[in-house]
Amino acid sequence: MSGEGLTVRDLRVTFDGFTAVDGVDLDILPGDLRFLIGPNGAGKTTLVDAVTGLVRAGGSVRFGGEELLGRPVHRVARLGIGRTFQTATVFEELTVLQNLDIAAGAGRGPLTMLRRRKGVPEEVARALETTGLTDLRDRPAGVLAHGQKQWLEIGMLLVKDVRLLLLDEPVAGMSHDEREATGELLRRISGDRTVVVIEHDMDFMRSFARSVSVLHAGKVLSEGSVTEVQADARVQEVYLGRASEPEPAAVPVAEEA
């Protein structure tokens, strides 16, 4: 699996003169479970937006030897890069099964598309099992609990054999049990894949991160294992120290640039 890691070099994103991401370098090894943390407005979501082609960016982002910058969103997705959003966006009027089947289907030929789905494709069945949604597969996604929607979103990335998952606050608004279950799910699916998680929840990060990058004001402030990052005086100053209060607001507003 060598050469499939994510390499970011001097990434810059500017909105009307405001620099949201200011020369970020990242090396995320294949199979890593990397947490991106940082205060609101640090540029975490913007960084993911840039990697997935949603916003224009300068610099270089390479994954599996391919340059990602400059490609339209759906082309980036076809390279095996999937993301979720802060608010779970599943297709509410379609069933869990239909959601997963659509996710599995990019690249299907026109003839397959014009036919009715017969049964459950194998990769969909596996994703249902991995995410624990098998029993709910015929429910409309709109009636799922918040946590289940996030798992469905992750399942929608798993069905198409995504090699890099970028998850934007997957446990925001989840109950304690749901957080634990999500953490276990992330552990299971990383290893074979590279997983990058944007997170505000420090307990969650401490429990499940394999490595951590701390972003601050569009720059990488610190990087390493959980222990190393926690020991970093600068991190304590800008973030951990201040955020040791119970929990920061679940939805950062400043990042919706």
Binding site: V73, A77, G82, E93, Q98, I102
Partner: peptide, 17 residues
């Protein structure tokens, strides 16, 4: 099914490739 998905969340469909 895909058409309904596009109607309900076009951006999401784009991220699925």
């Amino acid at each position: 099914e895909l058409l309904v998905a596009v109607r309900d969340s076009e951006e999401r469909v784009r991220f699925l490739g």
